[in-house]
């Protein structure tokens, strides 16, 4: 399958990348491992004028400790991150989500930045141009309708990053640099909750750092998928706990993760969080397993993840 025409540029530093972006009049696109982006291009879901390759920027590839944070460069691959000495010990939820992401080969190419900034997915969206033209364009393709839920006012595509969930459970924040300068926001604030355009990134912004509070946590990641590798999550639940408090993040359903604080560790309290997540999750028939089933599983997997996170803590 051939790609649409675009130009290729490799940036040597962040400023150069941003400059290239500005020169493209907003039509260029940043490229990391390409494992999310290239399939989208092949399907003509995106037709940028140029790729700006970020892999030549050394600064984006490092993992370091700065103050009370672990700072992770977005171009660190999932595989490198998974095998980093601190991750398994300090951030088990992240370790498990990395390990559960696609398959080993894709983990070796896919980056953590690209993973978080991957586009949302839908069975009726990730299709060839011919397929989609025949079916009719939906909101996410610039059309006026949702092809899954008739008369819906919004897009129900699913955000399928496994690792966003664990990073959220670890209260991560991100640093961004763009034509208008730098900013640091909580990871939660990166999500627009709109499936058409799932991120709050401003045009030309580059994700430059992830910051995770460097505290030993206990945690777990539960993933619903049909096959035990390659598959995206049909539902993912990450839980991380530090000192009797924690966060539960539910994703793979709808355009943005759901995040809950876990304060009441009594049986009833845990059930309540699971129940609340189940109520708030709005799966629709846009994945391989049924929507009703996925909704039920929110409860089941949330309880499982919490139980495991608590057990590990003991």
């Amino acid at each position: 399958m051939i790609l649409p025409k675009f130009d290729y540029k490799k940036a040597e530093d962040i400023a150069a990348a941003i400059a290239l972006y500005e020169r493209s009049k907003g039509r260029a696109c940043y490229l990391a491992g390409g494992t999310d982006l290239i399939p989208l291009l092949k399907l003509r879901l995106s037709e940028p004028s140029a790729m700006i390759d970020l892999k030549g920027i050394p600064q984006l590839k490092t993992i370091s400790r700065k103050g009370n944070s672990l700072v992770i460069g977005p171009n660190v691959t999932l595989f490198e991150l998974k095998n980093h000495e601190t991750v398994k010990d300090y951030f088990p939820a992240l370790y498990e989500s990395l390990d559960a992401t696609s398959c080993e080969t894709l983990q070796m190419r896919g980056t953590i930045g690209g993973n978080i900034l991957q586009n949302t997915r839908c069975l009726l969206y990730n299709k060839s141009l011919d397929w989609r033209t025949a079916r009719g364009f939906c909101y996410k393709m610039g059309g006026e309708t949702c092809n899954v839920v008739p008369n819906a006012a919004a897009c129900f595509s699913n955000y399928c990053s496994d690792n966003a969930l664990s990073l959220l459970s670890l209260s991560a924040s991100v640093k961004l640099a763009g034509p208008e300068g730098e900013r640091k926001i909580k990871l939660e604030k990166l999500f627009s909750k709109d499936g058409r355009n799932p991120f709050t990134l401003k045009p030309g912004e580059i994700l430059t750092e992830f910051h995770i509070p460097f505290k030993r946590s206990t945690g777990a990641y539960e993933k619903l998928r049909v096959r035990n590798a390659i598959d995206y999550p049909l539902l993912g639940v990450a839980v991380s706990m530090i000192g009797g408090k924690g966060k539960v993040c539910v994703g793979g359903i709808g355009p943005a993760p759901l995040v809950y604080d876990l304060k009441d560790l009594s049986g009833a309290g845990l059930k309540e969080v699971a129940q609340q997540a189940r109520q708030e999750a709005r799966p629709v028939s846009n994945t391989t397993l049924s929507a009703g089933y996925r909704k039920k599983m929110v409860n089941v997997l949330t309880q499982r993840a919490i139980k495991r996170a608590l057990k590990e803590g003991k």
Binding site: L123, R227, T288
Partner: peptide, 18 residues
């Protein structure tokens, strides 16, 4: 009349781990 999984991602050919 649309095939929803005409690919090797959403059509589930079992893997070694399955």
């Amino acid at each position: 009349g649309f095939l929803l999984n005409p690919d090797l991602l959403e059509y589930k050919v079992p893997l070694a781990c399955d």
